[in-house]
């Protein structure tokens, strides 16, 4: 436990230390609770399984992408390519299970249609990470390359066609239910817990935060900066790839032009509302999860109560402004 400094007679403060981050987190929880309460009163049929399932289903892909985004942001970077990577993964999966080979051995085809897109996504992350680590390209520029070309690749793969399919096995990713709630919600929750534990308990998590906090100091202390950054971009891309698969599974259709469109912005917004600092050094994973849910719920609240679609964008923007303001005020005093 805390001890007064051995040399000074000065008493150590008794207040526990983590309080600052926890306050932010609690603030978000309180805001979320208030929003839910508001909906219970205002919105018809809010507390029905149907409504909850719809919201969970919509928020899960955003949350999954935002987890990876939070890690990249923690290194002081940003990943604009997540939406495009979703499109690539989403385009590949149907190509694989609809191919002659995939039809011939459906079980193997199903596994391959999940595993291969994830591997390709990982390769995209490797590309991003190498540009950032070895060539020293600014993350926003490095990932802009795949942001632009990734969707192009997805369109070329599919000849720009909408691929529709009927594959109950694959569709489970987006339409399955466990305990009445969408499978992807459980996936997002499980991933958030895993990532949170990784950040908190592992040497990788420690390295991640120290690189984001002061890269030069971290490198001098022997931290394998390049390896950690590359791993982080790869994790982010794989999570994006998974989200792409889920979106395609929900619709039983893959549209390379639409899958993951503007997702990078939603993910960044969720991370920022959740308490991530764009300057790096912090990775509030559970905050990100709540941030995604919060943004989703605000949008739903407005739409369900007859506010026009366009207005939700403005409200979302306002929330981000407030989140950034709260973060900024944390840095002062």
């Amino acid at each position: 436990m805390s001890q007064p400094g051995t040399l000074s007679g000065r008493a150590a403060p008794a207040a526990p230390r983590r309080s600052r981050l926890d306050r932010r987190f609690l603030g978000l929880v309180a805001a979320l609770a208030a929003l839910i309460l508001l909906n219970v009163v205002l919105t018809n049929n809010f507390l029905t399984l149907q409504t909850i399932a719809v919201n969970v289903s919509q928020v899960a892909p955003i949350a999954i992408v935002a987890l990876g985004m939070t890690l990249v942001i923690a290194t002081g970077g940003i990943d604009l390519s997540v939406g495009a990577v979703m499109a690539v993964a989403g385009a590949l999966a149907p190509l694989i299970f609809l191919s002659g080979w995939g039809q011939a051995s459906p079980a193997l085809g199903l596994v391959a249609s999940i595993a291969l897109p994830l591997l390709v996504a990982a390769a995209c992350g490797l590309f991003n990470g190498m540009l950032v680590s070895f060539l020293g390209v600014q993350p926003i520029i490095a990932t802009l390359i795949l942001f632009i070309s990734g969707r192009g690749i997805a369109l070329v793969l599919t000849n720009g066609n909408l691929q529709t399919f009927s594959n109950p096995g694959f569709a489970t990713l987006g339409t399955g239910r466990i305990l009445g709630l969408p499978v992807q919600g459980w996936i997002a929750l499980a991933l958030a817990l895993v990532v949170a534990l990784v950040v908190r308990k592992t040497i990788y998590g420690r390295y991640l935060l120290s690189i984001g906090g002061n890269e030069r100091a971290a490198a001098l202390a022997g931290t394998p900066v390049a390896r950690v950054k590359i791993a982080t971009y790869m994790i982010c891309s794989m999570l994006a790839g998974l989200a792409g698969l889920i979106v395609v599974a929900i619709n039983s259709a893959s549209d390379a032009a639409r899958v993951g469109n503007l997702m990078e912005l939603d993910a960044i917004a969720a991370a920022v509302v959740g308490g991530a600092a764009l300057s790096g050094g912090r990775a509030p994973i559970l905050g990100t999860l709540l941030g995604a849910v919060f943004i989703q719920l605000v949008g739903y609240t407005l739409i369900a109560n007859g506010v026009p679609d366009e207005a939700t964008y403005i409200v979302t923007a306002a929330i981000i402004v407030i989140a950034v303001y709260l973060q900024d005020s944390r840095r002062r005093t």
Binding site: L209, S210, G213, N214, R216, A217, A218, L220, G281, R282
Partner: peptide, 9 residues
Amino acid sequence: VEGIIPDLS
């Protein structure tokens, strides 16, 4: 610049 990670404990 080369020593502390300010936000870490």
